[in-house]
Simulated scan of single mutants.
Amino acid sequence: MLLKGLSSQIPWMPIAVAVGAIICTEVICIAKKHSRIKKKTEEVIDVIIFNENTRSQDFPTSAMESMISYINQAQYSIDLAMYTFTNLEMFQALMEAHMRGVRLRIVTDLVMMTSTLTKMIDFKNAGFDIRCPSSKVMMHHKFVLIDAPKAANDISLQRTSNKLKTSTYRSLLLSGSVNWTNQGFHGNWENCIVMSQNDNRVIIAYATEFERMWSTFPTV
């Protein structure tokens, strides 16, 4: 009887409303937290050709400048697998991305790591973790992943938890025949395909290979 009397005296309706409001607030906060991690949905399919025309001063935008424009879109991460790398402009583009907070990871070939004019030594002297296969078999990949899905999502969640600003991103893959060298950009006939698929199957396949190499190859 005492409990029944107390129950009739407790204002259950206002309490229920207050509890419901608290739960809704928490749900909204969680939703807002994850809504800040946005991915661009516009699909990109581009083919960059390096030939005598794109090397001409009359060509509106050089092929290398087109590649740099994609590097400049990076918000969270750049994963580079490059056989040989000597070009100053691409080196500067990657360093600028790093300076604005983009994580940079590099996999290259052991022999090319110390080749003439290589920029890998400059990256290493700047403190970057560079990894190579320990065998004499060539690491002959030539691709770069910009904001790969898992990497971008993990980093953006970390930024959110640290109350740092997050940005809209788009996962991109640049892959083709061209090494990032002066000869490759300004002398050879080469190609580079740029893509961002909404279902990410191709990008995820490349990202899986990069992560496999990154976890397998030692730091040089």
Rank of each mutant, 00 (worst) to 15 (best):
D129M: 12
Q92I: 14
H34V: 03
A148Y: 03
M13H: 14
Q57E: 08
P149D: 12
K39F: 01
V202Y: 14
C24D: 07
I193L: 11
G20W: 01
F185A: 08
A74N: 14
P60G: 05
S177D: 13
R159N: 13
V178I: 10
K142C: 07
L110T: 06
R103P: 00
N191V: 04
Y76I: 12
R36A: 09
R36I: 00
N182T: 04
F85E: 03
I71E: 13
D109H: 07
T108M: 07
I146C: 08
S77M: 02
P60N: 12
D129I: 10
K38H: 00
F143C: 01
K136Q: 10
I23R: 06
K39Q: 12
Q183R: 12
D46A: 06
S175N: 14
T160F: 02
L164K: 14
S175P: 00
V47P: 00
H98M: 15
R170F: 10
A16W: 06
N51G: 05
T108N: 04
F91G: 03
R55D: 11
A31D: 13
S135C: 05
M90C: 07
N198V: 04
V107F: 01
L110N: 08
R36V: 00
A16K: 08
L6C: 11
A21Y: 00
Q73T: 15
Y206R: 07
V202E: 15
W12S: 15
G20C: 04
N51H: 08
W12T: 15
L174Q: 04
D199L: 02
T118V: 03
F50K: 09
F85C: 03
Q57S: 10
I28D: 05
V27L: 10
E211V: 06
L173P: 06
L145P: 04
M99Q: 15
I28R: 08
Q57M: 07
S134N: 02
Y83N: 12
V19C: 11
S161L: 06
K136N: 09
V144G: 02
R201A: 09
K124A: 01
T219G: 00
I106R: 14
N72D: 15
G20K: 01
A31S: 13
I146M: 07
N53G: 00
M67Q: 06
I48A: 08
L145S: 07
F50W: 12
S177I: 03
M195P: 00
S134A: 07
Q9C: 11
V220H: 04
R105M: 08
E209F: 00
S161M: 04
F143L: 03
R103A: 14
F91P: 02
R159L: 11
G176K: 04
N72C: 09
I15F: 15
I155C: 09
K4E: 08
F185I: 05
G127A: 15
S77N: 08
W214N: 13
I23P: 02
K40S: 14
D79I: 00
E96L: 10
W189R: 15
E209G: 03
E190L: 02
P218Y: 14
K38I: 00
N191W: 02
K119F: 03
K39G: 01
V220R: 02
